[in-house]
């Protein structure tokens, strides 16, 4: 009896790894690997949006999205591809760099030995936890041209005599999007950098102080080396999350006015769902995937660290 139990115990123990890892791997195969393979598969088919007929087209979807051609003659990059890529670079570049600078500043402040630090930390995190849709609509309301708070503050305080229609101008609409994005994602930077700052040994600061190092030199020589891994992670995740973000753009501008705030994510959604062209949508998905991995590779090479 007890030997039987014993052997069952031993068998179960031997199976510990397969039983704990196996189901997760099967699950991941079903919800991640299979859809990703299917993405590549879908990207080489073209579906006629008006009658649903599907044909194998090889890489033509990619070619059409990225390059302009006329009767087989290559005319350079497709104008949509160029302009949407540019919007994406502006959107991601500005939001990430501004929110990084802001987040680093706040993290450095929160790292000080201040009373009520926990309270401040709680208060700065909240924007990141709210549903992006709600944040996007909230900022759309803030920037609303007649009744929005920003126009209200500017005109009622007398700073401006007439209200600004933020969403009717491409540049202003992009600015509104970037502000919303910074608002949403800066807390993430703060959290990651704050955790990184906690790794900096206090004695080193003290030593630096004894050496009479100025603040810049202290940051560069003491803080930065310890903070580098966190900076890398914060930037990587921030960038790859921003490239894929549809929520804010879709609820605030839907890519408008005209196409001036169309970014890759909204282009992909519009192509696949609004225009009913899944093949080209999948091709854009493949491009997005490739770009994401390229960015990660480049960042980790620049910082000279291996990922994880």
């Amino acid at each position: 009896m007890s030997t039987e139990k014993q052997s069952l115990r031993r068998t179960l123990d031997r199976l510990f790894v397969p039983l704990t890892v196996g189901p997760t791997m099967l699950w991941i195969a079903a919800v991640i690997v299979y859809p990703t393979l299917k993405l590549f598969w879908s990207s080489v088919f073209w579906t006629n949006p008006i009658n649903g007929q599907r044909e194998f087209v090889g890489l033509r979807n990619f070619q059409r999205l990225i390059f302009a051609e006329e009767g087989g003659a290559f005319l350079g990059l497709a104008p949509d591809f160029v302009s949407i890529t540019w919007h994406t670079i502006v959107y991601v570049g500005l939001s990430v760099s501004i929110s990084f600078a802001l987040g680093l500043g706040i993290a450095l402040l929160l790292d000080k030995d201040l009373k009520g630090r926990g309270w401040f930390r709680t208060a700065v995190i909240v924007p990141w936890i709210l549903p992006y849709v709600m944040s996007g609509l909230m900022w759309r309301w803030m920037f609303q041209s007649e009744y929005g708070a920003i126009n209200g503050l500017l005109t009622q305080s007398g700073l401006l005599s007439s209200k600004i229609a933020f969403f009717s101008d491409g540049t202003l609409a992009m600015m509104a999007l970037i502000i919303a994005d910074i608002w949403v994602f800066t807390p993430f930077i703060i959290i990651i950098l704050l955790a990184g700052l906690q790794n900096v040994p206090e004695q080193l600061y003290d030593a630096a102080e004894v050496d009479g190092a100025g603040r810049i030199s202290r940051f560069v020589n003491v803080t930065y080396p310890f903070l580098k891994p966190s900076i890398l992670v914060a930037l990587t995740i921030r960038i790859i999350f921003d490239i894929r973000a549809l929520d804010l753009v879709w609820v605030m501008t839907q890519g408008g006015p005209g196409k001036s705030t169309e970014v890759w994510a909204s282009w992909l959604y519009r192509t696949a769902q609004v225009f009913n062209r899944p093949g080209e949508g999948a091709a854009l998905g493949v491009v997005l995937l490739a770009v994401t991995f390229m960015i990660v590779a480049v960042l980790y090479n620049v910082f000279g660290d291996s990922p994880y």
Binding site: S145, S162, I164, A165, F166, S168, D169, P257
Partner: peptide, 9 residues
């Protein structure tokens, strides 16, 4: 003759 911000109206 057009209002400011017509394209967002």
């Amino acid at each position: 003759l057009l209002p400011n911000g017509i394209s967002s109206m």
